[in-house]
Each structure stands twice: as C-alpha cells, then as structure tokens.
Design a protein around this nucleic acid. Sequence first.
DNA 1: CTGTTAGCGCCTTCAA
DNA 2: TTGAAGGCGCTAACAG
Lengths: 364, 364
Amino acid sequence: MKSKRVTLADVAAAAGVSRTTASLVLSDRGDELRISEAAQQRVRRVAAELAYRPNILSSALRRGSSRTIGFVSDTVATSQLAGDLIKGALEHAHRNGYMLFIGETEGAADEERRLVQGMIDRQVDGLIIASMFTRVRAVPAGVDPRSVVLLNALPEDSAMGTVPSIVPDEYSAGRAAVDVLRAAGHSRIHLVGAGPDRGDVPVQTVAGSERLRGILDALAEDGLEPASARLCSVWLPEDGWSATRSLLETGVRGEAIITFNDRLAFGAYQAIHEAGLSIPGDFSIVSFDDHQLASWLRPRLTTFALPHYELGALALQVLLEGDASDAESIRRVPMPLRLRESVAAPGRGTTEAASSSRQTAASP
Amino acid sequence: MKSKRVTLADVAAAAGVSRTTASLVLSDRGDELRISEAAQQRVRRVAAELAYRPNILSSALRRGSSRTIGFVSDTVATSQLAGDLIKGALEHAHRNGYMLFIGETEGAADEERRLVQGMIDRQVDGLIIASMFTRVRAVPAGVDPRSVVLLNALPEDSAMGTVPSIVPDEYSAGRAAVDVLRAAGHSRIHLVGAGPDRGDVPVQTVAGSERLRGILDALAEDGLEPASARLCSVWLPEDGWSATRSLLETGVRGEAIITFNDRLAFGAYQAIHEAGLSIPGDFSIVSFDDHQLASWLRPRLTTFALPHYELGALALQVLLEGDASDAESIRRVPMPLRLRESVAAPGRGTTEAASSSRQTAASP
DNA sequence: CTGTTAGCGCCTTCAA
DNA sequence: TTGAAGGCGCTAACAG
C-alpha cells in the first residue's frame, strides 16, 4: 500500500534504544520490566511523531494471532433481511480491534471450501459460518472446531455439541404469535404458509417448522387447532396472495391470520384489499421477520423481528470469548414483537385501530 | 486457527530438497529455473499429500502483496439496495484470489479513520471507499491515492483526477426516463421527489440532481417542461404518497409521473389506488433504483436499475488493474431500463397493459 | 540444477 | 534496566 512504512526499528533508532526496548514500551510492558521513565517517554514521543503503526502481519506471524475473523455465508451479505447479521458481527469485531473477512458462497460447496481455505491461509483467528435462512448444515472440513461458530444455522447431528450455534428463537415466536391473537380475543386462527400438520412446511426451513411447532403447541394448550392452514412451498408475496384468496373464498370474516413471513403478509394484504375488505376490521394479521416492508404497509404489520443484529454480535462474542465448549452449545436469541396496527378484536366492523383515516391495504 | 500447520520447510524436508527448490517448484518457476522433472514431481506430490498451503501472511511480509483488499463504506453492507455493491466486489475479488475486509463507518469520520488504519496495518493492497448513496466525499487522509478507488462516490474537487471513481450514470437514466414516456406518447410529465428547477433536490444527493438534470434536458430538447413537480426532502413511501395525493387533487388524469425512486413510487401507487384510479390506465409511472419492491407491485414498476453489482465489480477491477491514473477517472456505469407494466399510452381508460385481471395498486 | 544466506517486521528468551 | 540473537514462514540473491 504505502511505499515507505515506519517500522519498529525506525522508532528504536530514532529514540536511541534497541528494538526490544521499543517493543516493550509500545506494548505497555515497560513498567512491568522496569524500563526507565525517560526512555519510555522518548520511545512514545518518537513513535507518535513518526506515526508508527505496528505491522499486524508480522506480529501475527510471530505471535499466532492476526486479530482477524472470517465470515463466510451462503448469500447473506446480499440479502437485505440479513444485512444486519453482518453488521452485528462487524461492529462487535471492530470494537474489539478485530477485522472481518467476508465471503459469499452462493451455496456452492467448492466455493465455500476455497473461501474458508483462503481465510485460513491468511491465519484468521476464527470463522463464522453463516446462513441466510436458518437451516441445518455441516461444519466445513479441516477447520479447528474450537474456533468456529455457526450463525443462523444448526450443526448436523454428528457435529452437535462440538460447535456453538446461534439461531433465532422461532419456536417461542410461534407461541407468542398465538398469544398476541388470543389476547385480542381470537380463537379462530388461519395459517398462511404452512400447516396444518407439523410436517407441512417448505423443505429445509427450520424457521417454518419451529414457528409452526410453537403455534400448534400454544393452540393445543387452549384446546384449539388452526381454523385452517395453507402450505406454500415458497414464501413470496404471490404465494401469500393466492393462499389468502383461497381462504377468502371460504367466506370467513372477522377472524385472524398468521402469515409465516412478511412477504406472505404483503400478498395477504393485497388479496384482502382486492376483496374490498379491511385490516384489522375483517382480518387481524400477525407475521414474522420484521421485513422493512412491515412498517410501510398500512395498517402497519404486527410481526416478530428476526434479531439479526444481535445474532451477528453474539456470534462474534462467542468466538472471541472462546467459551464455546459449553454443554449448552445452541443459543436461541429472542425474536422481539413489533406490535403494530394489524391486530384488533375479532368480529366484522370498524375497530379502534381500524378507524384510522388511512384504510386501504397498501396506503402509507 | 489450526495448531499444526504444514510449512514449506516440512514439504522440502519430506521431498528431500531445499526450501528454495520447493518454493520455486510450487510457484511454478521450476521449469524456468530448470529444476529436474523428478524433483518437481516429488515436491508436488509431497505437497499434495501433506495438504500444504502457503502462509499468505509470511509471503505478504516478504513480497509486499497480501492479496487482500479493504472495502470501507458508510453503511452499505446493511442496506439492501446496496448489498450487490459488495457482492460485485466480493465475487470479482475471489475470482482473482483476493480476500476482502469489510468495514462500516456509519458516517463517523473517526471510525472511518480507525477502520482504514486497521486495514493498512494488515497490509491491504488497496482500498475501496464506498458510499451507500452517491455523494461527493473526501479521500481518507494518509492513504496512497494510487491504491484507492471511490465507489458510488465522487472525489472532492481537490482530489479530482487523482483517484478513480465509479458511479451510476444517473444523468443518462434521467434522460431515458423521459424517452420511455415520450415514446409511449406522453408529453405531460409530473415529477414526484424533485424539481421543477435544477436546484430543487434533497440536500447532498448527487442522484437527485443528476436525474433531474437529465429529465429537464430531455424535456427541453422537445420544447417541454415538467407538467408539475413536487420536491420531497426525504424519499420514503410516505413522502411519495403525500406528493401524489397533492397531484391528484389538481384533477389531472391520464398523464405520466416520474418518481425519483422506487419507494416514492410505492407511495404513489398507494395514493393512486386509494383514489380509485389505476396504473397505467390513469397514470403511467417510471422510477429509479429497481428496488426489490418494484417487481412485487402490481402492475410491476418500470424503473431504471442501480447497477450495484457492476459498480462493485468494476471498482475491484480498476483497483487490480491499477490503470487508475487515466485522464478519464470518473467512470459512469449505465443504469439499465427494467421495462414493466406501469407505462401505457396517455388517456383515461383501460389499455392493453391495464386490462390484466389483477388491477389494484398493490395486488401481487 | 540446487543449496546457502539473508532478510520482510515483530516478539521473546537469555545475557549483560 | 537494556541489548543481542534467533525465529515465525516465505522469497530473492547469489553461489556452487
């Protein structure tokens, strides 16, 4: 980068001491090893004057630690939902003097191998293996399990307990979604995206099955079942739209819907609005993710937020603290409720929340 | 990371040659320096068997290049719009054997200084200084201008010409937005977000003033002016909603709107729909950004895409190729048109595009 | 054709 | 209290 770099030897020479002395002073061990106050002052002053900066590469070579962490994800950096995953990890890293390498694999195993290898070649102190959506995945081969953490991913059975794992607490959020609607007085709750049985979820989505499990458990405790459920193999607005249309055709009104994510909810809003119905007057809706969209919709969408920032920060913290080998190696981070205007008491008609002046499905 | 690392010395010993020989063979200079075929084979075989990987830190120390680039942005990693900026840079880097450090400053100057410094301490070969939205900004102090590129940012006058800069071609997109509407037969074009005069843009947005300049120039060439214009100091859905409502109150119908970004367009859709009007029957809309949302709206939104991926990739390419010191140091990347269903010929009533079965503003 | 020697910049014994 | 020497892993000069 820069042609001429100031080295420790330069500082030592300019201060008239040996490299050792300069090194000790600058790593704050001068007092400990009783180096004369005068010499210390001189070294510090000269270092400041020359704007000396230790070369981390050489110190890494000598001491083993590069103060660098690798962050490898399938496609997390690019997804908006998960940008905060990186952000949490980055900020925590920088606060502690660490730098982060970022890599995206697009799900390709050989690309993952190359990225992980490239990071190890650069002597990273640890690796975060992240996934955009929560899923079960293998730990890359050939890495020291003591310095890896899975982020938004669960280890395969074989690696269970050997590698720490950070995931959102989807199960509790599922339960809480039911609680919100029950508290508003609803007992007829329709599901859009998954259900009615535990196995009725899109393939490979941990979030789906955990949310569903939480919902069914919470309902069961009140002796209830979903009023209806529609499985969508993909969770995009379009899918939410069709599922909700199909629900509307059954003629139900004044009940509640849990959509399995906010994009499905967006589609549900559109379908309900097209049918000339209103939210939350005709349907209360609760969702998951807290996509940016959720607060753009009108009425604003009640949803459980994926705690991306916290997940990312925690991953780094676990990695740095290194107390990885706890028995409790899976950490579930709470998904906070964003209580907004899409929920009201059951029954057709205008409710307090529904009486706002801006009523159409998608008005701001 | 790993406790025991295979070193070049290990390979040399196992192959029964000196470290130099091993080094030469493994860096493919064996033939050049005429090392015996037998020795080369042995070295390669042993290296493969031991899974030898050169330690890039030590080679960086010796040779100067760490095959690592620093990417510092204000808040780009977290924003969805700009995730592809990083992606473009990452992929181009990885394809060329480079690794990327990522840093986010949140716009804080001292944080930026620390991050840049942290990267230089790790001997990065170059720096990409990125901005989430296009703006004019200073080059960080103390970095070699030959190894820096500004991404989605323009250098201050003082640094103009010394540092390459990669930005979207907003001006041409502004012109092209007018062209799209003119080609559809529109001559009455309303602006939502900026205008009517060149100076009427939110502060500090290069995108705003360039888009506006392009629009006004293109109109002027046909002897036209905007039919109306509404400046919004912020470009969120809410702002587009109010501006569009105010436009609707003037009673115009069957004309065209250019919104200055897709979130404004989202608000415009909502307002038009609330008024019981349709797109593109009552209003044709053209926008900028190609936000994810644009293809979720119904009818899908015609918009000019920010070429984030290309911007990021080009930044890296310019950095690696090092032909930075061209006279032409600002590179403008075209913003491709995403022609969708939100544009039709002027005049109230159902048009071919408007006759689709799904007509409400926000239906999927 | 191959090995020896000498650093890159830092840290860490070990002597003085 | 300070300095000399050696080595982390790699590469480049220079011999042989």
